[in-house]
Simulated scan of single mutants.
Amino acid sequence: MNSIARGASALILFVSLGPAQAGAQLREGSIAPETRACAPGAAGPAARVRIQGFKNRQGGLLVRLYGDRREDFLRAGRKLKRIELRVPARGEVDVCIALPGVRRYAIAVLHDVNGDLKFSASSDGVGFSNNPKLGLGEPALSKVLFTARPGIQTIPIILNYRRGLGLRPLAGDR
């Protein structure tokens, strides 16, 4: 299997979604079941994932947290946490993730535009911690790892959508 096919398979595996999380609060500014972990005075460690560059405000979001092992990154059943919610109609999109400890992690985000619970290269967007440049394959784990610190840190993620032969942010978003 060539590297493009292997990368496309990994992205498709990454975006296989389950049913959307029931009852997730969608408030302007900060959303997700773990919002309290990013509240003022929270001890952390926590990541406030700031998702930017939406093509539109339709569908759902899937945010996955991975550890620092290459064999686990983007593999089914190997995530540390998974948060699913609908894309809010307006406002900034911050998703809080309580981190298990101070160490290295990777975050992957899918914007499932059509809500079909499958990756569609023609419409869906993806993004990763550290905002690596994407082609058709998955990014190297070393390019998306960040080191969690005590407290709360903001992790900006810019979504990438299919443009030509690769995935890139929409104009002006990088």
Results as ranks from 00 to 15, higher is better:
Ala5Gly: 13
Gly172Cys: 06
Thr147Tyr: 11
Ala22Ser: 09
Ile107Asn: 01
Ile12Arg: 14
Arg168Lys: 13
Gly125Lys: 08
Thr154Met: 11
Gly115Cys: 04
Leu117Glu: 09
Val49Lys: 04
Ala43Thr: 11
Ala5Asp: 15
Asn130Ala: 11
Gln58His: 10
Gly151Phe: 04
Glu138Ile: 12
Arg162Asp: 05
Ala20Tyr: 05
Gln21Glu: 15
Gly18Pro: 00
Val102Trp: 00
Ala47Glu: 01
Phe119Glu: 03
Phe54Met: 01
Val126Ala: 04
Ile107Leu: 03
Ile97Lys: 02
Arg174Gly: 04
Ser142Leu: 08
Arg50Asp: 04
Ala22Leu: 13
Ala20Lys: 06
Pro19Ala: 13
Leu117Trp: 10
Ala5Arg: 15
Arg103Ser: 15
Arg70Lys: 10
Phe73Gly: 03
Leu26Phe: 02
Ser9Ile: 07
Asp173Ala: 14
Arg69Trp: 03
Leu26Met: 05
Ala140Gly: 11
Ala24Cys: 11
Leu141Gln: 05
Arg36Lys: 05
Leu13Asn: 15
Arg103Cys: 04
Asn2Arg: 13
Tyr105Leu: 02
Lys79Phe: 15
Arg82Leu: 10
Tyr161Leu: 03
Arg27Tyr: 10
Arg149His: 11
Val95Ile: 09
Asp112Gly: 09
Arg103Trp: 04
Asp116Arg: 09
Ile152Ser: 02
Ile107Cys: 03
Val87Thr: 07
Ser123Trp: 09
Pro150Ala: 15
Pro45Ile: 10
Ser120Glu: 12
Asn130Arg: 14
Ala24Asn: 13
Arg174Ser: 06
Arg162Asn: 07
Asp94Met: 02
Asp68Ala: 14
Arg103Glu: 13
Ala98Trp: 02
Arg48Ser: 10
Ala46Gln: 00
Cys96Glu: 03
Lys143Gln: 15
Pro156Leu: 00
Arg48Ala: 12
Ile155Lys: 00
Lys118Leu: 13
Glu71Gln: 14
Leu117Met: 11
Pro132Arg: 07
Tyr66Trp: 12
Pro19Met: 13
Arg168Glu: 12
Pro100Glu: 07
Arg149Phe: 03
Val113Gly: 05
Leu145Trp: 06
Ala76Asp: 11
